[in-house]
Amino acid sequence: MSDKGLPATFENPGLPPHIHRAADDDPRAAKRAERQVAALFTLSIIGTLGFIVSYFAVPNDTTVFIPFIGKTILLNILLGVTLAVSLLGIGFGAVHWAKTLMSDEEVIEERHPIASSDEDRAKAVGILNAGAEQAQLKRRPILKATGATAMGLFALPLGVQLAGSMGNPTKALEESKETIWDVPEGGKPIRLVRDVERTPIKASDVAIGSVFHILPETIKDSKHVLADKAKAAVLLMRLHPSSFANDSLGEKAKSWGYEGIVAYSKICTHVGCPVGLYEQQTHHLLCPCHQSTFDVTRDCNVIFGPAKRALPQLKITVDDEGYLVAPQGFAEPVGPSYWERKK
């Protein structure tokens, strides 16, 4: 209390007086609300019937043009709109009923502390202790020890079964280094073929400024096409030899290529998306997933974005018939970084 006899804080004035709604006092307003609710429920019934009629009467492939939406499948629109009417009719009807006709006088419910009373706690502890006593937990520590250990371990076999049988991780390290570009000792160089058409490609087919999506010819024998493709996809570009940077990176890129034609792994060194966007003017390769940018004139080193490493280059040359071939696989693992990449 302050000097003036005023309390230190205001007092809660309690619930304000209830203000009646139109439907509380006026029977005509109440009747009107009743009619509105009934109309909404009726609308729902019509929607339901409309759905059933549409389902059986409208063909699957009829398309229709709807402003702002475009050409679309009529059946989907009809089923969706009728179902929506059916559901919204019930929803709006029920809420309108609650808001206009059901009591809107607020009710007060008392709260009680969440915590149990001391007696209840004591009782629960008592029961637990008595139970432990009856089970002779304290007198027989060996039961406690072995029981707890058994409980602690029983899930282990299930975990081992699950983790052990999901996949064979021991192959992860060697397979991460292999691609189907790898040429066995004394084997023939592998021809480059166009992705999709799978036709071999001559150096003379590659004009300056053009870009080709490339796979190894060996893809035709692949037993796991997607898995092999996921590591072997290559992007082939031809630059004017003078476009390459005048440094060791540019020289290396050129020397691993053929007359300005260079081939790089298409699998981003960031998280493995295909680096599919080649900008001819700047000789930049851009990954559409996270925008890592690689400079083809400098051996596809990263010039921007979240990737750290350059795209691995595939050494290429031509065979007797003038077709582009890769005499050896990639010199380093392709794709995203991983812990043992350098091992």
């Binding site: 983790a163 999901m166 996949g167 064979n168 991780p169 192959k171 992860a172 390290l173 397979e175 991460s176 796991h224 997607l226 898995a227 996921a230 590591k231 493995g272 991983y338 812990w339 043992e340």
Partner: peptide, 13 residues
């Protein structure tokens, strides 16, 4: 690399 091989049951995909 092991997690990846376990989750994918081998090489991606």
């Amino acid at each position: 690399s092991w997690v990846s091989y376990i989750v994918f049951g081998g090489a991606f995909p």
